[in-house]
């Protein structure tokens, strides 16, 4: 898509997705937004699911059976990934915003994502182990 078209001026944010210009900071920026959208969606889905509690065991028990299916557990792992990436990247942004680790923001991002990966593997093992 030619994003320089004048009629697309209001949609300049689409240029975020011009991967030719992506560097580490841009990848972190996009990851933070994608995970944020995912977490907000999860929050609403979570609230919708909780309404089943009010409907009693006839509604809740079938859901619990679904929640134990491997494909559903994979979604839990995805949720954990979103939380770790968003939380730790957010921590980096908050620190640099206060002037801490400003010059080392790239190594800080890499280090925090390694922490996220390790925690994700541990969490995934725990989730699938039941």
């Amino acid at each position: 898509m030619n994003l320089y078209r004048p009629d697309l001026k209001r949609f300049r944010f689409l240029r975020w997705f011009d991967f030719r210009s992506w560097r580490l900071g841009m990848i972190a920026y996009i990851l933070n937004r994608v995970t944020a959208i995912g977490l907000v969606l999860y929050l609403y889905i979570h609230l919708a699911v909780l309404t089943m509690l009010a409907q009693g065991p006839s509604s809740w028990d079938p859901f619990i059976r679904i929640a134990r299916a491997p494909w559903f557990l994979a979604l839990d792992v995805l949720l954990l990934a979103g939380m770790l990436i968003h939380g730790l990247n957010g921590l980096r942004i908050a620190l640099t915003g206060f002037g801490i680790g400003v010059r080392g923001q790239k190594p800080l991002f890499v280090a925090l994502m390694i922490v996220a990966a390790v925690a994700l593997i541990a969490g995934a093992l725990k989730i699938f182990a039941g």
Binding site: R23, G25, Y29, I93, G99, Q105, K106
Partner: peptide, 26 residues
Amino acid sequence: CHSAWECTEACPQQVFPAESIMALRK
């Protein structure tokens, strides 16, 4: 500013704009 740091990465003259933004925030 959402801290993508792309300005500092792209700057050809070592102005470090992102660092300036963080310093201003402080």
